Computed example of a mutant assay.
Amino acid sequence: MKQRVVTGVLGGAGFLALLVWGGYAFAGLLLLLAVIGMYEYNRMNRMNPNGLSAGVALIGTILLVFPWSVWTNWSPNWEAIAWVTLFALFAITVLSKNKVQLDQVALLFAGMVYIGAGFQYMLLTRLSEHGLFWTLLICVCIALTDSGAYFTGRLMGRTKLWPSISPNKTVEGSIGGIVVSIVAACCFTLYAPELLSVGQAVRLGLVIAVVGQMGDLIQSAYKRVRGIKDTGSLLPGHGGVLDRFDSWLIVFPFIHLLGLLP
């Protein structure tokens, strides 16, 4: 527990510092996390992370997350990156005479989109107008959803939410996490009422909590299928990048695709 707390405090402080700094620093951090996350994903799926197909998927992930608007005046179309990467992966199945099989290609492409798009939308949020405000709001709501669900579940949890996937999660805990997330989002209206109305805050808090918990369950289900506890050991006591950012990788794209940010 002590190791978990120390890692959480130090890691959280470092992440917050780079988030506030923004620009090159935050973009570089997300790029690094995406590379590590893809490595964890390949290892979790028992694929050689140094193989040609894994390398192609990694390049596609990097191109998706790369902060083009920060470091260049040119920005490629992300659909083109995804399609060219998919074509290259398909070509490898042919050139390898099916030593690299179609199910491997599907897993690699899914990982590229999951990790690449997730970190890409985190970066887009931070680089947007009032980006620090919106990024902090989403991050705080995600973190407090987890805490609210944990403590509510400990105090009042009776009904198992999804025992075959995550035996410790309860319906009561899930509802508690949603309520805490909505309250947290509404608190941001006190700081900047001109940016966020109460109605917007309620919608954001609700969506972040529900989608964030689903992201957590998705990763839990995947790890259970693969028979592993953590995706990595980068953060002692917390696991790997995919363990810590499972909700984030789902929430940030969802918020943008639903048009919930101005």
Rank of each mutant, 00 (worst) to 15 (best):
V5D: 01
T7S: 15
G8P: 11
L18W: 06
V20T: 14
V20I: 15
W21Y: 14
G28W: 02
L33E: 04
V35S: 02
E40P: 05
N42G: 14
N48Q: 09
N50K: 11
V56G: 02
L58E: 01
F66K: 00
P67N: 03
W68T: 08
S69P: 00
V70R: 04
T72D: 12
W74H: 11
E79N: 10
A82T: 13
W83G: 05
L89D: 03
L89S: 05
F90L: 15
A91V: 13
K97R: 12
N98H: 07
N98D: 08
G111Y: 01
G116P: 04
A117W: 06
A117M: 14
Q120E: 12
Q120G: 00
Q120S: 13
L123A: 08
E129Y: 03
H130M: 04
G131L: 07
G131I: 09
L132A: 06
T135H: 08
I142Q: 03
A143V: 13
G148R: 04
A149E: 10
R154Y: 04
L155C: 06
G157V: 07
G157R: 02
K160S: 12
P163I: 10
S166V: 08
N168S: 14
T170L: 11
E172P: 09
S174Y: 15
G177A: 05
I178G: 00
V183Y: 10
A185I: 04
C187N: 03
Y191Q: 06
A192H: 13
L195I: 01
G199Q: 14
Q200L: 00
L204I: 13
G212Q: 09
G212C: 07
R224Y: 08
S233G: 06
L235W: 12
P236Q: 09
G239Q: 10
G239F: 03
R244Y: 05
F245N: 01
F245K: 01
W248T: 12
F252A: 07
F254C: 15
I255V: 15
P262Q: 10
